[in-house]
Design a protein around this nucleic acid. Structure first.
Lengths: 219, 219
DNA sequence: TATTTATTAAAGTATTCGCTTGAGTGATCT
DNA sequence: AGATCACTCAAGCGAATACTTTAATAAATA
């Protein structure tokens, strides 16, 4: 019954790939990257049933992508390693580069306009220090409350039209959300540009910002 | 019928992940990385039936990881993008870091000994220029004949004992094979070290060497 | 034009996956 | 201790996958 070591290794690598090969698990990873959470919160955020979320989470744990620990009644999941984020990001890069379908979806998010290059995190940090930029955190209010980039203002897509009236026309805005998989920032930037603002996306989202050791406001 | 753009994007990312989530397809990618090849050659190298290999290859093509073109009677497959190699390598890194099982298998390959750190490609290039190192290409003869690092000597695992007798004891040897998924170099290094040679693996294999624009002997 | 060769398509089967439902487990609260 | 809460396990079902066998297609050759 002993199979070759080569086959055994490939089986393990494939196990990791299989873990990131279901949309539900990618959503869970995106949520866990925001900060460690219990099963119920993750299920609620991703729209999965509790039992289903639990099973997916165990799949992720078997692949070594997340760790879990017990905290009272809850079981808290968190990313086991920063490389997990890197793997997800590279997956996205490969998909965007090779699949025309992805190009099309992203173009649709920008409402036909050409999207500008994202702002690098280094750039944003510099401008933050100068105070020369407005930052919009385009995530749901509870995620913003949990953690956000200091100085960011929580603005959901629904708020955008109302908020825009209070902004100085032409001002420079940087929007971010959960990370590279999150589309809110794309949509917010497209809407703001349509209104004539100089809006751009931040490259990556909160997890990538935190991962680089930058300051995060945390509750 | 129109699903949300978010779900559509995740489905595309998952498609790419699914493509690298089967051992058979990882083997195919490893082979294709050696150089472009037809279906029959790939099937033979990986031990898959022709029809099965063809289906896996189409799976890889749908995910945008490989391209194909017709050359006479044959259909030639090749990597569509260097990022594919990077993705496979990161997959391996994540698996090695997080899965105890992988650690165990790799330890088994080294026959219980502690394996030394691999030699970087920069280092090897420097030593090659100095002529201060012996390079073993531990792949099957046909793959060596197809392409190899200039100055390398083709030595299969079966030859190793015989060849060892002709080497100066204590000499420094660097072994490489197909790439990070290939175990021949691990095994060769373990065997050579047991015989008292100062042997180490090259980091990566021929595809990574070529990818960096370094010289490759090619037929 | 007919035949051979290389590959893909189609059809069938066994296995695995994703999701649901309902029962089971561990920790906390009363 | 009993009730409750948060999660996991087990069973079951439909859909998707991996592999095999058997056509079908496309290009080269006779």
């Amino acid at each position: 019954m002993s199979i070759s070591p080569k086959a055994a290794l490939l089986e393990e690598y494939a196990l990791v790939a299989r873990a990131i090969s279901a949309p539900a698990r990618l959503m869970l990873l995106e949520q866990i990257a925001q900060g460690e959470r219990g099963v119920e919160a993750l299920a609620e955020k991703t729209g999965l049933s509790i039992a289903n979320a639990s099973q997916h989470l165990q799949h992720l744990r078997r692949a070594g992508l997340v760790d879990s620990r017990r905290d009272g009644k809850s079981v808290i999941y968190r990313l086991s390693d920063a490389k997990t984020l890197a793997l997800m990001d590279l997956l996205r890069v490969v998909a965007e580069r090779n699949l025309a379908q992805v190009e099309r979806i992203l173009r649709g998010l920008s409402d036909g306009q050409d999207a500008p290059e994202p702002v690098s995190r280094d750039d944003l940090a510099d401008r933050l220090a100068e105070g020369s930029v407005t930052i919009f955190d385009v995530r749901p209010a509870d995620e913003f409350a949990f953690a956000h980039i200091p100085g960011a203002r929580n603005v959901t897509l629904a708020d955008l039209d109302r908020i825009a009236l209070t902004l100085i026309p032409g001002s420079e805005i940087v929007a971010y959300c959960r990370g590279p998989y999150c589309i809110y920032a794309h949509q917010a930037v497209a809407a703001l540009r349509k209104m004539g603002f100089n809006a751009r996306r931040l490259d990556g989202g909160l997890p990538e910002w935190r991962e680089e050791g930058r300051q995060v406001f945390h509750n």
